[in-house]
Amino acid sequence: MPGQGTCFDETNPEARKKESVYHQVKEFLDKGETLAVATIVSAKGSTPREVGAKMVVTAWGEILGTIGGGCGEADVKREAIEVIRTRKPRTVRIDLLDEISSDSPAVCGGIMNVFIDPWWKERDQEGSVRK
């Protein structure tokens, strides 16, 4: 099955523990950056990763984590930069059926909805946290 190596990740629990998405988010927020967190919220057909998979995009277009390698990730990155700029979340529909990039190892063929959510420090501290 081609593309498994690029589509799946995060197999080591210790690494996951120390470098979970939220560790990364917190680290960037502490530095005062605005981030976009992209999450697959629903999927139909063959998609490279499961519902709940996440990818963090920084204001500089740097990507941490993956929602499936070549499969629509470029579109999500482009939208994520807009989300960071406007600080307004949006949901993006990624149609992998039309993607004719047969040279990409990550050929899939489903549809997924990706929610892209901006995170920044002040917003992160808004929720009345109860102990």
Binding site: L29, W119, Q125, E126, V129
Partner: peptide, 10 residues
């Protein structure tokens, strides 16, 4: 913060 609470969960 929320991110801190999430880090604690993990």
């Amino acid at each position: 913060s929320l991110s801190e609470a999430l880090v604690q969960v993990v």
